[in-house]
Write a protein that binds this DNA or RNA. Structure first.
Lengths: 227, 227
DNA sequence: GGAACACTTCGACCGACGCCGAAGCGTGCC
DNA sequence: GGCACGCTTCGGCGTCGGTCGAAGTGTTCC
């Protein structure tokens, strides 16, 4: 397998839509993916066979359904980096407002961390008070930030010992700005779930901010998250 | 611009070969790129126009030559992550031995750090003596490693304060194993150049290990780099 | 057993795109 | 000026692959 083959696999609109739908790590049935891509089941079937054959997708049978998911975080990372290039190359364009995915824009999961307006606001808040310092290729937590995060219930030392990139800016495709990924991003996300400030919406990447979370975000980070 | 468009751009063999040739950050002329891709200049011209139009490549006129390079490290990162997926998906295959790119396999630059047998050996040496601990998504330097690297002339604290990913495993496409990227990868590379242990070959990604470097690598890291 | 359902396989159609030859444009060298 | 050179534009050719209808396989439910 070479670069061109991988590019080709992603380079079809229908397949790209399927992959995007799978980007949050959930597994979807062939039918659902066909619907996502706006094509007939038999067409989807051939696409899925290609993606699976190339090892981008993993499949699991369950009764008469076939569930597909991204085969590894490596694939998710690749798609993410491709989306970043998309967003960077088209920095200024009229934002196509769509009612339907307003919720998705507000807050969603991006593999294992938070994205959307919420994710970006959180990154902004931490940057504004000098807690983290983000650059193109990574980021650091300042001594001040260490203290702020500790008060919020996040042990930076423990996170930084994980064998993964500690802090990484991840370009948000809806907001065209960065949110925080890496161990810190996951840590923040986990903490918000633990506190009950946010919760997942079934069968969706959408994340709901609870009333309690709205109060907490306002008080702790001065974030006014829209209802 | 969307995911599929980017995929499509990379998804052509000729374009993929051009992009790969540009992956070390150098700028090449349209003619050189045509040669790399094994196509006629007029065909290359249309490919390059597409890549440039999409913002993946930047162009600079110089006399009657046109120099093309990757427009940003973001693009390089994307290509790298795509190559990783290529390599992961095809883990075991008969290695196609080619005399021509033996040098390239032995040691080369990968954007801003070292790759090839040399890069992998270095990563192995550091891992073996417990200096670094690499995982799928990142890596850490142990206290022991901090000491080893300090003796070698690398200030880990300074590197870790850079606003980029500190240590990241980068899958080596020729060796199918990891070498070290990120700030640490660049730090190692810089140090080897400063010591005069390695040097660039003009107009190529190939890196030559000097006799002095061969001795040094053997003594310091117990690496027997082939001549 | 039979019907509904999820999905796959096969075959035919057709549009998109990569390819090169020929010709045109701008630059540098003698 | 004249020629060589690097590159681009244009036009026609060929092929590859995405598309869907029809038919087939396997599963669930009654």
């Amino acid at each position: 397998m070479n670069l061109a083959e991988v590019g080709n696999l992603v380079g079809d609109l229908a397949r790209a839509q399927m992959l995007t739908a799978l980007l949050d790590g959930r597994a979807l049935t062939a039918g659902e993916l066909a619907w996502c891509a706006g094509i007939m089941p038999q067409t989807a079937s051939s696409h899925l066979a290609k993606l699976q054959g190339a090892g981008l997708l993993a499949m699991e049978k369950q009764g008469r359904h076939r569930y597909f998911r991204l085969s590894s975080p490596t694939v998710a990372a690749m798609l993410e980096s491709m989306q970043v290039v998309c967003a960077v190359d088209a920095p200024r364009r009229i934002r196509p407002e769509s009612r339907m995915d307003r919720d998705l824009r507000m807050a969603r999961s991006c593999y294992d961390h938070l994205a959307g307006v919420l994710g970006v606001s959180l990154a902004d808040a931490l940057t504004d008070r000098g807690a983290v310092d983000l650059a193109a290729d990574g980021g650091v937590v300042t001594p001040v930030g260490r203290k702020i995060l500790a008060e919020f219930g996040i042990d930076v030392d423990q996170l930084s010992q994980q064998k993964r990139c500690f802090c990484r800016p991840c370009l948000d495709w809806s907001e065209r700005r960065h949110h925080i990924a890496g161990a810190l991003g996951k840590g923040l996300s986990d903490r918000l779930f633990d506190l009950g400030w946010v919760e997942r919406i079934r069968d969706s990447r959408v994340i709901r901010v609870t009333p309690e979370g709205r109060r907490g975000l306002k008080k702790t980070f001065a974030i006014d998250h829209p209802a």
